[in-house]
């Protein structure tokens, strides 16, 4: 049976299957192809490494995008 793990995404709990990649998380959140940037545990993970980056329980993920500002 597939086991799950908990991570934090933008400060909120998120349940993911164990061994999920960052790309899996992005797909789950329906953000694939969007203009975003992601940090895992305060380190930027370049877009090219989203598929190869596996998430661990309790990882802190930050997902940001551009909004209006001056």
């Amino acid at each position: 049976m597939q086991k799950n793990m908990q991570i934090q995404v933008n400060g909120a709990s998120q349940t993911l299957p164990e061994n999920a990649s960052l790309a899996d998380l992005v797909a789950l959140l329906e953000l694939t192809g969007k203009r975003i940037a992601i940090e895992v545990n305060a380190e930027i993970v370049p877009r090219s490494q989203h598929s190869s980056t596996l998430l661990q329980a309790d990882d802190q993920v930050e997902i940001v995008h551009a909004i209006g500002g001056g």
Binding site: K34, R35, I36, I63, H65, A66, I67, G68, G69, G70
Partner: peptide
């Protein structure tokens, strides 16, 4: 200029992005 902020998770995934 633009600002950088947390993406709202699970809210209107089809909402247009400023950079679009």
């Amino acid at each position: 200029t633009v600002a950088v902020r947390r993406t709202n998770i699970g809210q209107n995934p089809d909402e247009p992005n400023l950079l679009d």
